[in-house]
Amino acid sequence: MTYRPAVTTAVPDLAALTLGVEEEYLLLDPRTGESLPVADRVLAALSGTARNQSRQEFRHSMVEMVTPVTADLTELRAHLVALRRSAADAARAAGARLVAVGATPVHEPHRTVPDKPRYHAMSRRFGPVAHDPAVCGCHVHVGLPDRELAVQVCNHLRPWLPVVQAVTANSPLHDGRDTGHASWRSMQLERWPSIGPTPHFDSAADYDATVDDLIRAGIMLDAAMVYWYARPSTAYPTVEIRVGDVCPGVDDTVLVAGLVRALVATLADDVRAGVPAPRIRGCLVSAAHWRAAHDGLEGDLIDLRSGGARPAWDLVDELVATVAPALARHGDLDHVRDQVARVRRDGTGAARQRRVMARTGNDVRAVLDHLAAETLAC
């Protein structure tokens, strides 16, 4: 039987939506930059709160840290700083370096999956795809316990998620070279059959029936393999946005979390007011995500409301303007505006990596030094 979270008809307090963030990190060799299969040692070295907030991931070279639930961005930032520091200390003790980067930048010599029945089942079902180099994402959970509302919010999110994806772009390197894409992680993940833009659903029942059909067809092992860019979480009473690369710095993550929460709050208001979600062809949504992965914020994005390409920063500005009332309601407006100005000045994680590459004559180790420093910058 497919797992189903409880459906509630309670109306959430949209003035104070809760937040939680999951961040995945790579464990890299400090000398070569190659991925190191030491996740078991890193997790074993964690203690206390950090151990309870950690998870084993699909690669031996990855760890995931999960913040507690909060309604305050300052508190979220403090959790992220503490978890990153704890994970970095444990990585150092295991001979590795913790790096917040979206895709394996140099090489992944060891691609076996951890010894768990589920991971072995995925390996058998999906073959070489399950043994691609590691990729790391940032997943933002926004509290929304009404599942019917959550499905409708996911419909309304579709035009905006390429903009969120572009803001998080942080994986231009693969095999030690620039791929020409701001988010190579996004390109790698396209090989998985259950990852991509969230389809439009008429209702929670429609969502559930579709997931059941995909499980019966062998596309997914179970409902937990719904890896669409937005989904009602299978584990928590939340909408989960999982389109982004892991962000290089804590302030980047907090910016994304603040924007995502305000976007969910804004769109939940629209749903409750009876505003219909735009019906956009799936091929156009996929094209918009490809453009976001390719250009990041350094080129154009596709405006899915009009279908045309526009400067990426025009759409970022429109996103901030659209969610400004919700940002103000949560007390986040000034902070988000300041952080958007910082990213406009300094660039995305991908742009910052490329700047180091240009300055050092394509020295990948210098890029990884830069990323490791950003991972722990406070």
Score class of each variant (00 low, 15 high):
A6V: 14
P30I: 06
S35T: 14
A50I: 05
H60W: 12
H60G: 12
S61C: 09
M62D: 11
V63F: 02
A71Y: 12
L76T: 01
L76G: 03
L80T: 02
V81H: 12
R97H: 06
A100V: 02
G102I: 09
E108H: 15
Y119F: 14
A121C: 10
M122W: 00
S123A: 10
R124V: 05
F126T: 01
H139R: 02
L149G: 07
P162K: 08
A166F: 07
H181Q: 05
W184C: 06
R185E: 12
S194F: 06
S203Q: 15
T210V: 05
L214V: 04
M225H: 07
Y227T: 01
Y236G: 01
Y236E: 06
G244P: 09
G244E: 14
V256N: 09
A257D: 11
A262Y: 06
V264K: 04
V271C: 12
P276N: 04
I280G: 00
R281Q: 06
R291V: 11
R291Y: 10
A292S: 12
D300N: 11
L304R: 05
R305Q: 12
S306F: 03
S306H: 04
G308L: 07
A309N: 06
R310F: 04
P311K: 00
V316I: 12
D317F: 08
E318P: 04
A324N: 05
D332L: 00
D334V: 02
Q339P: 03
V340G: 04
V343L: 07
R354S: 00
V356H: 00
A358K: 06
G361T: 07
R365Y: 02
A366L: 10
D369Y: 10
T375A: 15
L376T: 03
